[in-house]
C-alpha cells in the first residue's frame, strides 16, 4: 500500500514532457524482475523448468539493461536540449 502511494505521489505532478522518459524509467525499475527470475532459475530442477527459467532470466536481463540504456539516452538528449 505504502509503495502504491509512493508511486502516486511521484507521478502526481510531472511535466508532460517527462512522461516518456518516466515511462521508460519505470520500465527499467520493473527490470528488478531479474532478481526473481534468477531465484526461480536457481531453484529449478527439471529440464523444462530450467529452460523456462533460462528464458526468463535472459528476458529480464534484457528488460533491465535495455531499460537503462534507453532511459539514459533519452534523458541525456533531454538535458542537452534543455540546458
Amino acid at each position: 500500500m505504502l509503495a502504491a502511494f509512493t508511486g502516486y505521489e511521484i507521478i502526481g505532478k510531472v511535466p508532460a514532457i517527462l512522461h516518456t522518459p518516466l515511462m521508460s524509467g519505470s520500465n527499467f525499475v520493473h527490470g528488478i524482475v531479474l532478481v526473481g527470475a534468477m531465484v526461480a532459475l536457481g531453484h529449478a530442477d527439471t529440464i523444462l523448468e530450467q529452460v523456462i527459467g533460462f528464458v526468463g532470466v535472459a528476458l529480464a536481463a534484457g528488460n533491465a539493461v535495455g531499460g537503462y540504456v534507453v532511459t539514459e539516452r533519452m534523458l541525456e538528449m533531454f538535458k542537452s536540449s534543455k540546458d
Binding site: 516518456t20 527490470g31 523448468e49 528464458v55 526468463g56 534484457g62 528488460n63 534507453v70 539516452r73 533519452m74
Partner: peptide
C-alpha cells in the same frame, strides 16, 4: 534511433512481462 525509442521501451517492457510470466510458469510447473 531516437525516434524509434517508444517501440524499444515496448519491447523491453514485454521482456519484463515475459520474465514475470516465466517465474510464474516455473513456480507452477515445479
Amino acid at each position: 534511433e531516437m525516434t524509434d525509442m517508444p517501440q524499444m521501451v515496448a519491447l523491453y517492457n514485454g521482456m519484463g512481462g515475459g520474465a514475470a510470466g516465466a517465474i510464474s510458469a516455473v513456480e507452477l510447473y515445479s
